[in-house]
Simulated scan of single mutants.
Amino acid sequence: MTTLFDPTTVGDLRLANRIVMAPLTRNRAPDAIPTPLMAEYYAQRASAGLLITEATAITQQGQGYADVPGLYGIEQLDGWKRVTQAVHDAGGKIVVQLWHVGRVSHTDLQPHFAKPVAPSAIRAHTKTVLIKDGVPTFVETSEPRALDPEEIPGIVMDYRHAALNAIAAGFDGVEIHAANGYLIDQFLKTGSNHRRDDYGGSIANRARFLLEVARAVTEAVGGGRTGIRLSPVTPANDAVDADSQPLFEHVVRKLAPLNLAYLHLIEGATGGPRDLPERPFDYAALKAGYHAAGGQGAWMVNNGYDLALAQQALADGADLVAFGKAFIANPDLVARLRAGGPFNEPDKTTFYGGGDKGYTDYPPLAN
């Protein structure tokens, strides 16, 4: 029987095991520049089969939180080169998560203090993070403006350029962030997309932006080095759709021909309940539809997994299991899972911002 610790091939990547470190925003990149401390942090966790970086802005317009990294400036790329080199020196594989937050932002973070952009001028009922007097502070998001149709191709090209930057910075691949109520997800879902042009209304129109981005990225760096993250029913960042099942079945069918390395599925509410009675969703049907359309990418599951649940997921046909918060406090999570524990508990007060405390100072298993 397949176990978490068995090697596998995912697209162009040969992975030492099926354990994935999920993207975890930590707000430790002042001026959007990755630091040497970040290189240490990721290298500590390189025993995972695959590391997915914290969400990384493809442009300044795509930034929604203070002190998150970017992938569009020379200093940012130099910082990421230190990270990828450290991970590779430790024997790991790492991909970067490409991020445009859309409306989940604040004017203080935008170029020239402009309004954030979105499919429609509908404010998100959620919060973002600014640094005030040196302290991360949660604030309400700003009112966005609707993107003009002629602006959209430029953002698609921003994703393409960021993917090329990622490969130049030494990443093994990229993950398109199409989940959790950020820009691509905003286009997908009826609660945030009220457009009446080719990017709104029907399922095919609402999925258009995602598919344009996915095609642009795979054409630039190859499907075998590209993954995509989806969250069909999470309420994160005020993301709501009237009927998620047909929407996401359409999405995965259209993604199938791109020969992606993997699809990364958040099951249920991001960081919350796996089952949402008010938003039922059939993930097995979604997976079956993807395979029926010829999709060959690995199926990565995420949300609330422990060792037993992860092994059951593999038995049920998943290929990879992503662990999030467990990796914060357990840099050697692979060894701890293999041993059945014990596990460090994360200090939630250090999740966002700060230095090495709660970041690189968690102890490994004693020899």
Score class of each variant (00 low, 15 high):
L130R: 13
G134T: 10
P136G: 08
T137E: 05
T137K: 11
V139E: 13
V139D: 12
V139A: 08
S142Y: 07
R145E: 02
P149C: 06
P149D: 11
P153G: 07
D158Y: 06
Y159G: 00
A162R: 02
L164K: 15
I167E: 04
A168F: 01
A168N: 15
A169M: 11
A169Q: 12
G170M: 04
G170N: 12
G173Y: 10
G173T: 10
V174K: 04
I176A: 11
H177Q: 14
N180K: 11
N180E: 14
N180D: 14
N180Q: 09
G181T: 09
I184H: 08
D185L: 04
D185G: 07
Q186E: 15
F187D: 04
T190F: 07
G191E: 07
G191D: 10
H194P: 14
D197P: 04
D198H: 02
Y199Q: 02
A204L: 07
N205T: 01
R206H: 09
R208D: 02
R208K: 03
R208I: 00
F209Q: 01
F209M: 07
F209A: 00
L210S: 05
A214L: 03
A216K: 05
V217T: 04
T218E: 08
V221A: 07
V221W: 01
V221C: 01
G222D: 08
G222M: 02
G223A: 05
R225E: 08
G227W: 03
I228Q: 10
I228W: 04
L230N: 10
N237R: 02
D241P: 00
D241W: 09
A242G: 05
P246A: 05
P246G: 14
L247F: 10
L247D: 12
F248V: 07
E249A: 03
V251E: 09
R253M: 11
R253Q: 15
R253Y: 13
R253P: 02
K254A: 13
L255H: 03
A256C: 09
L258T: 07
N259T: 06
A261P: 07
Y262T: 06
L263D: 09
H264V: 09
L265G: 11
L265F: 15
